[in-house]
Design a protein around this nucleic acid. Structure first.
Lengths: 231, 231
DNA sequence: CTTTGATGTCATGTTTTTGTAACAACATTG
DNA sequence: CAATGTTGTTACAAAAACATGACATCAAAG
């Protein structure tokens, strides 16, 4: 694994969060913590963690409802979720999985078990684009080595351009508005001018060179689109 | 956008409400105002706005308590809330998000920032309808990639023609007057000559080419119709 | 404390799009 | 067939949207 995975732990009890955090950090994960569903939502929108560990029983919005809410939102729809449920409640299991969680684990659990589950879920859900190199018509982006090459020769592009291209290559043939791109590539709550997107599109095109700039297409009145097909 | 979004502004100071209202109306939102939590509640129940801008500091019930109250009631549980907090109070941020707000913004803020936040929250919370490609007799319009093709080969058409065609393809076999088309395709409160529709119809027909222009039919004395059946 | 690189914003130059007006073509009615 | 009301076409100027290069800022690296 090239980059360390970030896991958001959502539980109202600080000691439990801590315990989990310690276990995960020992296993090489980076941890974020939230003590309520809403705080969690803010963090998710803000930092886009790779996975969410969610307590089932919480004051305010319950874990299941929260999971459901995450599934509805496009931005978070395919974020892996593991539910933490109290032991021996079969019903929870069912509702939990119905709500769209990827797995559940009953308390109490051993750190080893938790890490194992987590790895399993990540393995199941991440190969979908995040780990595999993508390539289109001689242009290749490798998320692992964090490199882009055109017909084999490496390309120079800044961090933002990289993320932009990565997003595009994993979401082809689809027109995105500038705001959508800001959301998906820049991350949630940042406030930047929409025109800034234009500039980065420009930089990306420049970096791609004549050979490939046709892939980044402008959709007038709407935004941009990445596609191997000519407009 | 299909319909203009309505925003309820809750603040006890009328000048501030006004200021915000002006900014939002310039950005194309419809504003409602309330100067207390109770009045706000009445308006919400009554008119169901699309989002609530809530001042943190208010006499009587505070913004946070009110937010919490809204979250508890199923009827208003998933109404987006943005909290307006005084500057430099980090604690507010946390409590605010805990209380269930979707975002917060610290005073003083620029109108532009407010509008940006608002847009972001609305975009995140408004579930987007499933946009399926439509096709008729070899003519296909794909809203996702924002493309139109005739027998597979892509067609060039401007933004307005695209919207016009999209409207037609999703409302076939029905005659529309010019003013109806202006309403549906151009959007509510724009003033343009009715004859302008003719011109765009012309452009659309041209873009469709001989193969498909028969689909756009003139209904003399009334307007136009899109149909696969000959008149 | 410089230097360097990345990023967001502006100002400016280009290209498209769009609304209208003017006129041609057409249909309808008497 | 004239007269009249409607629609089709084209040309054009204003406006909007986009592209581009330059610049200021900020943060990390040296």
């Amino acid at each position: 694994m090239s980059s360390t995975k970030r896991v958001l732990i959502v539980d109202d009890e600080a000691p439990i969060r801590e315990m989990i955090a310690v276990a995960l950090e020992m296993a090489g994960y980076e941890c974020l913590e939230a003590e309520s569903a809403n705080q969690a939502h803010a963090i998710i929108v803000d930092t886009k963690p790779d996975m969410v560990l969610l307590d089932w029983m919480m004051p305010g919005i319950s874990g299941v409802d929260f999971a459901r809410r995450l599934r509805k939102d496009e931005l978070t729809a395919d974020m892996p979720i593991i539910l933490l449920t109290a032991k021996g409640e079969e019903e929870n299991k069912i509702k939990g999985l119905e709500s769209g969680a990827d797995d559940y684990i009953t308390k109490p659990f051993s750190p080893r078990e938790l890490v194992a589950r987590l790895k399993a879920v990540l393995r199941r859900t991440t190969p979908k684009g995040v780990e595999e190199p993508v390539s289109v018509d001689g242009l290749t982006l490798d998320p692992i080595s964090h490199r882009v090459s055109s017909e084999g020769t490496p390309l120079e592009l800044g961090p933002t351009e990289f993320r932009l291209l990565q997003f595009f290559m994993t979401h082809q043939d689809r027109a995105y508005s500038r705001s959508q791109l800001l959301d998906m590539v820049w991350g949630g709550n940042v406030y930047v001018e929409e025109r800034t997107v234009d500039v980065h599109i420009r930089r990306l095109r420049k970096a791609l060179g004549e050979r490939h700039e046709y892939l980044v297409q402008t959709v007038r009145g709407t935004g941009y689109r990445f596609s191997a097909n000519v407009a």
